[in-house]
Simulated assay, not measured.
Amino acid sequence: MSYQIPYDFVLQYLYPVRPHVQKMLGCYGLFVNGKNILLLRETDVNPEFNGVFVATQPEFFEALSNELHHSHMEFDIDGSHHSWIFISEDLDDFQGKVQKACEMIKQGDERIGK
């Protein structure tokens, strides 16, 4: 199925990785090798939560947050504490932070994905 996803530059940054895109939770989940790597959210409802969510595991959360972005908001989207790093679309360097996450994914960083 084909979707018009928000922040389509993410797909360009991930190239040549071609994630499977799935509509979920009012967002779009990007999956690589069966692992959810990113959630893309852009909606008029609660726009303060629009941006890119990077999936991780609790044991990698702090180190990965320090490398990508340390948000003051915590999200337990799937019931797992410390497993989503939120990069807000309101940040001045939003695209740069998302690009860094995509580069890490392309390099096979095992800390990204769940």
Rank of each mutant, 00 (worst) to 15 (best):
I77F: 06
V32P: 12
S88M: 04
G108V: 03
E59A: 09
G34T: 08
M73D: 07
S2T: 10
F61G: 08
C27D: 05
A63F: 13
M1I: 10
P6N: 04
I105Y: 03
Y7V: 00
G113R: 04
Q4P: 01
V32Y: 11
D78Q: 14
F49M: 06
V32W: 08
L68M: 04
C102E: 00
I85T: 01
Q95K: 12
V17G: 03
T56N: 03
R111A: 05
R18G: 00
F75V: 04
Q12E: 06
D93L: 05
Q99Y: 13
K100E: 12
Y28Q: 06
S88L: 02
D90M: 10
D8A: 04
I5Y: 01
D76H: 15
G113Q: 06
D8Q: 07
I85H: 02
D76T: 13
C27P: 10
Q57C: 13
F53M: 08
E67C: 03
S83P: 13
I77V: 06
S2H: 11
T56D: 04
V32A: 09
Y15C: 06
F86E: 01
F31L: 13
T43C: 04
E89H: 11
R41G: 02
I5C: 06
N46A: 11
R41E: 07
M1T: 10
W84P: 02
R41K: 14
L68H: 02
H69A: 01
Y7K: 03
F61E: 09
D109R: 05
F86G: 01
D78N: 15
E103V: 15
F94W: 08
E67L: 08
G51Y: 01
K23I: 08
S83A: 14
V17T: 07
H82S: 15
F94H: 00
L11T: 00
G29E: 05
V32N: 07
D109H: 05
L64S: 00
K106L: 13
Y28E: 02
I5A: 03
Y15G: 00
V52T: 07
S2M: 11
F53P: 05
E62W: 14
M73Q: 12
D109W: 02
G79D: 04
I105E: 08
D44E: 11
K35T: 10
R111H: 01
E103Y: 13
Q99I: 11
H82D: 15
H82V: 11
G34C: 07
I112P: 03
N46F: 11
D93S: 06
R18W: 01
Q107K: 09
L39A: 03
Y13R: 09
Q107I: 06
I77K: 03
K114I: 14
C102I: 03
H81T: 14
H20Q: 10
S83C: 13
N66K: 15
Q12V: 12
Q12D: 07
L39Y: 14
Q99P: 14
G108Q: 00
H70T: 11
E42C: 10
F94E: 04
Q4E: 13
S2L: 14
G79A: 09
K106Q: 11
M104H: 09
Q95I: 13
Y28C: 09
